[in-house]
Design a protein around this nucleic acid. Structure first.
Lengths: 253, 253
DNA sequence: GCTGTTATGCGTAGACCATACGCAGAACTA
DNA sequence: TAGTTCTGCGTATGGTCTACGCATAACAGC
């Protein structure tokens, strides 16, 4: 409650302050023609349509019918814009777990929510993130995840570690899946042709004597079959949750 | 063994073929002044010294005393160079598990090996990877990981999933750790000042009514304490391995 | 040894990119 | 009405990757 005006720690970039709703418009000067959120929304629109690589300051400005340099009145740098894009790209958190939900169902729901976002907006995976979360929605996601673990035997630090474990897993899984899709698109193949093509390439490169285990996997046809990628997701998630459950049981004694 | 000249599947970029040792020098023409590996080594040297952002074609060329465009005789594009940088950046795989090692100890060793590489060369985390692994060393790592799971009750597909789970975890953990370090450096703070500063910032932003669980974590001082980051790493890894172990026991009956 | 073929090194130039700086004018206060 | 402050944005700088084409070096066959 002792939030003094400044001096209290490191300074937040203006654009992030405005994302938190702190920061009123100064009384003087001309009325701003746009706002931080207008810009971020436009940038997100560009990323949704043409990918993150298409997001340049001039492209975003064109989207708004403004000049490139006008954006810099609102955003300190492109990196700052990217940070804000992530925030609105993730969107609102899935909300606290419904009542009567046990931790496992709650975290599963939470993981699927992030999974769905990342499947819809794969460009989120390409944003080079450069620091711990400080934007409102990001922290909202954290909050909702933590609530799933309320009432468990885990300590506060362990709860946090568990969430990081899961969110990391979800990101990773989404990254692999989207890489396959992008690789396919780049080669002019359909996604279903991709894995067989990859499998064939490996078969040509891999010497069974030097890579026996890999050769065995390949022969088993594991890589060929295009099973539902959601099955793969479920496998890893269940492994992690099993591991967390084992810890809880050990804690409970 | 039926490797015809071409037509067998998608074509590999020339530079990757030379990474596999296929590809002899054509008999005609002037003797090349450099080689793919000379270039990749130089690029790795630049990345080690000044980070991935410093790796530009002109910078690498300068490192070699060559002209920028000379590099394009050896690598098809910068992306291709990055792919090869990842390969030599990871370096040789840790080797198969020592005899008499059980799967858990083997995978732990494997995970720590990657962990150590990523701690030493954080730029590896910043390379936008765009496809499944096809370079020799990468597949060597996979091979060694798979060998740890030889003789377990897991199916081939499950072995692969387990490895992806672990390598994803290691990457994720390394990413978070390096982000803290980089964020600190960018703010002109020492790494040990970073987390307290972050904690103070969160305390200023977070409304306890809207973020009760997060507030509780913050109050517990979880974020403040700079405990050994290796402890965090061990926590997650043990959770995952516990989960895999649980699956094995269920399989065994 | 001469000629034709082929590969290398690399200079030039084009198309982008982020962004520092400074100016004209709008909207407010006094 | 004068002064202040903020907006929009034009210009310019220095960086990026890379397409193209030319001169030259090294070999194969005659």
């Amino acid at each position: 409650m002792a939030a003094q005006t400044d001096d209290s720690g490191p300074v937040l970039p203006p654009a992030i302050e405005s994302a938190w709703g702190l920061r009123e418009r100064p009384p003087k000067g001309p009325r701003p023609g746009m706002s931080v959120s207008t810009i971020v929304d436009a940038a997100v629109r560009v990323a949704d349509a043409d990918g993150l690589a298409a997001v340049s300051m001039s492209r975003v400005a064109k989207e708004l019918g403004a000049a490139t340099m006008a954006l810099y009145r609102y955003v300190g740098s492109k990196d700052e814009l990217l940070l804000l894009m992530v925030d609105t790209g993730y969107g609102p958190s899935p909300g606290p777990p419904p009542p009567e939900t046990d931790w496992r169902a709650g975290l599963t729901r939470w993981a699927w929510a992030e999974h769905d976002v990342l499947r819809r907006r794969t460009w989120l995976l390409h944003v080079p993130i450069s620091g711990p979360p400080i934007t409102p929605q990001q922290l909202g996601w954290m909050e909702d995840g933590l609530r799933c673990l309320d009432g468990t035997t885990l300590g506060e630090g362990e709860k946090m570690s568990t969430l990081l474990l899961i969110t990391g897993y979800v990101r990773n899984e989404a990254t692999l899946t989207s890489q396959i899709a992008e690789g396919a698109q780049a080669s002019g193949l359909t996604p279903s042709e991709m894995m067989p093509a990859y499998s064939r390439m490996l078969a040509r490169l891999i010497d069974p004597a030097r890579f026996p285990a890999l050769h065995r996997v390949l022969s088993a046809g594991v890589i060929n079959q295009d099973d539902d990628p959601d099955d793969e997701f479920v496998f890893g998630l269940d492994r992690i949750l099993d591991g967390v459950e084992a810890l809880m049981e050990r804690r409970a004694g």
